[in-house]
């Protein structure tokens, strides 16, 4: 594993968890985290740098910290969280700036790991049952988040070609389920009745959140350049996912579904972006064998990820949702990290 690591999206769910994992490894000397927002989980030695959404500060940071590894977790895959414009800014322009910094003539960067999404395959009736990493998508991307991710991947493959001395790993994750993560699908599964499109019962595939972090760690630890799908084994129908969560289902109309969903989205009842509606119609499967062949061991199957989510959901129903107790305070963090008053235990 690289000794000096830059994590983008430190304030996000994934960035924070990756940084936590890196902190546990004594061979990692320096961890620098970049984000627009402060981290939401306590970190011991990660240095947080506040950046704007397009990461214009990045080339200076890379030069100043001489990082050898960049973990790019800050790709937005949930389009319900922000406007299309912001999403484009973060995904496309942010990645462009990141690659520009990493590809500078005197750059110290030797490894880049990017967390992308199976959204780049889309979801259409012309899809194969399983997408391999090489399989092209069946229809051109229509939603903003899909277009932006496809653009990002285009930049990355150009970058990998132009910089053969940098090991570039691109991970495409299936829909994530687990104990903590919140996505449009988990929000749908948290409703009193789970929406489905009448007449369709698509096969979905999931990856557990632990496996997400572990797979990122795995690619950091091993030299595995290339594109990898990350998803638990098997697929299961959406009706079965609802059944495992012990929820009844409520039908959405099979025609003009996006229009029917729109007023509910506005009211904040159902939050189903168009790419999720497409998924609930046709499903998606990605072939996870390449990462397995590289040596990664999945902790959960797709059904296991659903079970993990269902257990956490049942627990939450009893003990309630926990509210944030940790807030990042720059002065406090700086004190603990840098003040001579703090007695540091030698390693």
């Amino acid at each position: 594993m690289g000794a000096r690591v830059l994590v983008t999206g430190l304030g996000t769910f994934w960035g924070g968890r990756v940084a936590q994992t890196l902190e546990a490894d004594p061979t990692v000397e320096v961890i620098v985290g970049l984000d627009r927002e402060a981290p939401k989980i306590p970190l011991e030695r990660t240095e947080f740098v506040k950046a704007d959404q397009s990461y214009s500060i990045l080339s200076r940071i890379v030069k100043a910290t001489q990082v050898d590894t960049i973990v790019h977790t800050f790709l937005v895959v949930d389009s319900t969280r922000m406007s299309g414009r912001t999403l484009h800014e973060i995904n496309v322009i942010g990645t462009m700036n990141l690659l520009a910094a990493a590809g500078a003539a005197d750059s110290s960067v030797r490894k880049i790991v990017v967390k992308s999404s199976a959204l780049v395959y889309g979801s259409s009736h012309q899809d194969p049952v399983w997408f391999r990493e090489e399989t092209p998508r069946s229809q051109s991307p229509r939603t903003r988040v899909e277009r932006s991710l496809c653009e990002v991947e285009g930049y990355l493959s150009d970058f990998a070609e132009d910089n053969p001395h940098v090991s570039v790993t691109l991970l495409r994750f299936a829909n994530v389920l687990g104990t903590d993560i919140v996505t449009p699908l988990t929000k749908a599964l948290d409703l009193p009745a789970v929406p489905f499109i009448f007449g369709y019962d698509p096969l979905l595939q999931f990856v557990e959140e632990d496996d997400v972090v572990r797979s990122i760690e795995f690619t950091l630890r091993h030299d595995v350049p290339g594109i990898f799908n990350v998803a638990g084994d098997g697929r299961l129908p959406w009706s079965e996912v609802a059944a495992i969560c012990n929820k009844p289902q409520v039908p959405l109309p099979p025609v003009l579904t996006n229009w029917a969903v729109a007023p509910f989205s506005r009211l904040g009842i159902i939050d189903l972006p168009p790419e999720t509606v497409a998924l609930l119609r046709y499903g998606r499967g990605i072939d996870n064998r390449r990462l397995k062949q590289a040596g990664f061991d999945y902790g959960y199957t797709a059904a296991g990820a659903v079970e993990s989510f269902a257990r956490a959901q049942r627990l939450r129903r009893t003990v309630g949702d926990s509210r944030p107790a940790y807030t990042y305070d720059a002065d406090v963090e700086a004190f603990f990290r840098h003040s001579p008053a703090v007695v540091r235990q030698p390693e």
């Binding site: 769910f13 924070g16 968890r17 936590q20 939401k40 989980i41 306590p42 049952v129 399983w130 104990t179 903590d180 919140v182 096969l203 098997g234 697929r235 299961l236 129908p237 009706s239 079965e240 059944a243 495992i244 499967g285 902790g299 959960y300 059904a303 296991g304 659903v306 079970e307 993990s308 269902a310 257990r311 956490a312 627990l315 939450r316 949702d321 926990s322 509210r323 944030p324 107790a325 940790y326």
Partner: peptide, 27 residues
């Protein structure tokens, strides 16, 4: 990290229970 970010041991040992599958729908 939990949903909100609080520190509680939400992470339980991995389910060792039987296969959660309820139907026999294959891939």
């Amino acid at each position: 990290a939990t949903r909100g970010g609080e520190l509680v041991p939400l992470r339980r040992p991995r389910a060792t229970a039987a296969d959660p599958r309820l139907s026999d729908v294959d891939e």
